[in-house]
């Protein structure tokens, strides 16, 4: 009770006393300079000295028991010892808690089925289109691990025209560029193309919103429309904007089949820039 009264006095004095405020400020400065004595600054925080984090984690329920006294208390089966511990045997000198834990701990490595996955072979690499170009849009800003949201302006809920797109990393020797927008998830098990434009001058590094550059050749999209249409059938969709660099001219004509042309494009293009975008109705 007496302590509680004392604490109240401290709090009351903070509120009332201007001089206490000044003292407090000085004390805080001193505290910051001194690092409070307990703040662990990285390298110092070993098992013996980092009492703060140790206490917190102890409450999280480690099963270590009470024997830990710091690094010096290591058992005799450490890596410095001979190779008796090989093969995963628990070595002599274990604590009783370790013995109790036998069967509870130890690695549970699942036995894999089938062959180990391998990296791409030289042939696969030669045929692959590498996603190493940068494609961005001021209208599509990614947040965290989620794709950037697309404004309704660029969908059938708005003007249904494309946003401005900027790119970089077009390799030397590129003959033309092709831009695609596709649904990430297939529609009726088929790749759905919302927009495809070929014949883009490789010296360009952007296109403006709703404005095609000179020489651009527009495909017939999945809706059967020659042009752009981005219209989710469900509540929302993730779309992929793709810019392919082509080492030679494909000679496509206006209204070309976007899906067929993509097969041709992937066969020759070694580089692509990708930009995912999310759109959900209302």
């Amino acid at each position: 009770m007496a302590q509680r009264t004392g604490a109240k006095r401290f709090l009351a004095s903070i509120a009332k006393s201007a001089s206490a405020g000044v003292t407090l400020a000085l004390a805080l400065t001193a505290l910051a300079l001194a690092g409070c004595g307990g703040g662990s600054s990285g390298e110092e925080a070993n098992g013996a000295s980092s009492t703060s984090s140790k206490d917190t984690l102890a409450s999280a329920g480690t099963e270590a028991g009470s024997g830990a006294k710091g690094p010096a208390a290591n058992n005799g089966a450490g890596p410095g010892a001979d190779s008796q511990g090989q093969g995963g045997e628990a070595s002599g000198g274990e604590s009783s808690s370790a013995a109790q834990n036998a069967g509870k701990h130890g690695p549970h490595v699942p036995v894999p089925k089938g062959p180990q996955e391998q990296g791409a072979t030289a042939e696969q690499m030669a045929n692959a289109t590498v996603a190493d170009m940068s494609l961005k849009s001021p209208a599509i800003i990614a947040s965290g691990g989620q794709p950037g949201s697309l404004s309704p302006t660029y969908t059938c809920d708005g003007k249904d025209s494309w946003p401005a797109l900027h790119w970089s990393g077009v390799p030397e020797g590129t003959a033309e560029l092709a831009l695609y927008v596709m649904n990430v998830q297939p529609v009726e098990e088929k790749l759905f193309v919302d927009w495809a434009v070929a014949g883009i001058d490789p010296s360009l590094d952007h296109i403006e919103a709703a404005k095609l550059p000179k020489g651009a050749i527009v495909a017939t999209n999945g809706f059967g429309k020659r042009g752009y249409s981005l219209c989710p059938q469900g509540r929302g969709e993730i779309y992929m904007f793709a810019l392919y660099a082509l080492p030679s001219h494909l000679g496509l004509r206006p209204g070309f089949d976007a899906r067929e042309a993509r097969t041709q494009i992937l066969a020759v293009s070694g580089n692509v820039g990708l930009l995912p975008a999310l759109y959900a109705h209302g």
Partner: peptide, 20 residues
Amino acid sequence: FATSASAAPAWKFEGKSLEG
């Protein structure tokens, strides 16, 4: 300070810091 400082923890076995 003691609880929010970015401490650098250690690997421990049965509560004892790993050596080696």
